[in-house]
C-alpha cells in the first residue's frame, strides 16, 4: 500500500467519510430535468402569447393608433413576452448543459434544439388557444402586468382617431350593435359600408376592432370591423376578461346557444342548406339554401 493510498484511507476513516446516497444524486438529476422542462414550458407559453399577438393583431390598423404603422408596431410589440421567451430558452439551454450527457452536444445544437422545441410547442399552445388563458391568468396574478397590458391595449380605444376595440354586448339589429370598449364604456355602433358585409360570424361577446368615426360621445360609426386577436376563444356572456376559457367557453364550429343572436351571411360559418337555424335569432343572407330573413323583434334600443 502506498503512502498516498494509506493517507486517503486514514482520512476517510478519521473523518468518517461515506459515499453520498444514490437517492441524493437521483433527486439532483430529477431536479435539473424538472427545471429544464419548466423552462421549456415557460418559453413555449411565452412564445404562444408572442404568436397570438403577432398573428392576431391587425397591424394595418396600427397606423391609426400611433400615426404611422412602424410606430404602431413598435408600440404594440409584446416585448415582455419576447423577453420571457428568451429567458425560458436561455434557462433551458443552460440546464440542458447541466444534464449528465448534455456536454456531448455542441452549443448551437442545444441552442437550436431549445429554440425549435419551444417554438413548436409554442405554436401548438397558440393553435390550442392556450395563449389566451395563460395570459389571462398572468393578468389576474400579477396586477402590474395587467396594468402594463391595459396601458398598451388602451391605445386601441381611440375613437377620436377612428379606432375602437370592444366586446359585443348585444346585436341590436342588422346594422346596430352595443359594444363595451376595453375601458368599459358602452358604445352604440352603427355598421356602414364594408362593415355590413363581413366574412366572419358576428356574435355576442366577441371582441371587435372597429375602424370608423365617433359621431357622438357614445355612438360610433364603423366602416370596417375585424375580430380582435384572431384565435381568441369566444365566451359566454358574463365571463370576465379576455382569454377566459373553461366550461363556459363556446366551442368553435358548434351552434350558438339559445340566447345567442347570430349574424351569419356567408362563408364556412353559414348554415347548411335546408338546415333550420338553431334556436335563437339568426340572419343568414347569402349562400344557397339560406333561409329567408325572418324579422325578429329586436330588443329595445338604449
Amino acid at each position: 500500500m502506498s503512502k498516498l493510498s494509506q493517507s486517503v484511507l486514514d482520512k476517510i476513516k478519521k473523518e468518517q467519510i461515506a459515499p453520498r446516497a444514490r437517492w441524493q444524486f437521483v433527486v439532483l438529476h430529477c431536479a435539473v430535468w424538472t427545471l429544464l422542462l419548466l423552462s421549456v414550458i415557460t418559453g413555449s407559453l411565452a412564445m404562444s402569447v408572442v404568436f397570438r399577438d403577432l398573428f392576431g393583431t391587425e397591424w394595418e390598423f396600427a397606423e391609426y393608433v400611433a400615426g404611422s404603422r412602424l410606430r404602431g408596431i413598435i408600440i404594440m410589440l409584446p416585448y415582455i413576452w419576447f423577453a420571457t421567451t428568451a429567458l425560458g430558452i436561455f434557462l433551458a439551454y443552460k440546464l440542458f448543459e447541466k444534464t449528465r450527457h448534455g456536454y456531448r452536444y455542441r452549443a448551437w445544437v442545444i441552442a437550436g434544439g431549445t429554440v425549435a422545441l419551444s417554438g413548436l410547442t409554442g405554436l401548438i399552445f397558440f393553435a390550442a388557444g392556450t395563449a389566451d388563458s395563460f395570459e389571462h391568468g398572468i393578468r389576474q396574478t400579477i396586477p402590474q402586468y395587467a396594468r402594463l397590458r391595459e396601458a398598451v391595449e388602451g391605445q386601441w380605444v381611440a375613437p377620436e382617431k377612428g379606432i375602437l376595440v370592444g366586446r359585443v354586448k348585444e346585436l341590436t339589429n342588422e346594422e346596430m350593435l352595443l359594444v363595451d370598449d376595453l375601458a368599459g364604456k358602452e358604445w352604440e355602433v352603427e355598421r356602414v359600408g364594408q362593415a355590413l358585409e363581413l366574412p366572419f360570424e358576428l356574435r355576442v361577446e366577441m371582441m371587435l376592432l372597429m375602424r370608423g368615426e365617433a359621431v357622438e360621445d357614445d355612438e360610433f360609426q364603423a366602416s370596417q370591423l375585424r375580430p380582435w386577436r384572431r384565435g381568441e376563444p369566444l365566451r359566454k356572456p358574463g365571463r370576465p376578461g379576455p382569454g377566459a376559457e373553461g366550461p363556459g367557453a363556446f366551442e368553435r364550429g358548434t351552434p350558438p346557444p339559445p340566447n345567442a343572436r347570430v349574424l351569419n351571411r356567408q362563408g364556412p360559418g353559414a348554415f347548411a342548406p335546408n338546415t333550420p337555424p338553431p334556436d335563437g335569432e339568426a340572419f343568414n343572407r347569402e349562400g344557397p339554401g339560406a333561409p329567408e330573413l325572418v324579422p325578429q323583434p329586436a330588443p329595445p334600443m338604449r
Binding site: 498516498l4 493510498s5 493517507s7 486517503v8 482520512k11 476517510i12 467519510i17 461515506a18 459515499p19 453520498r20 446516497a21 444514490r22 441524493q24 444524486f25
Partner: peptide
C-alpha cells in the same frame, strides 16, 4: 488525495 476522497464520496 482530494481527488480520491471526491471519487469515494461520489461513487454512487
Amino acid at each position: 488525495q482530494e481527488v480520491f476522497i471526491k471519487i469515494y464520496r461520489n461513487l454512487n
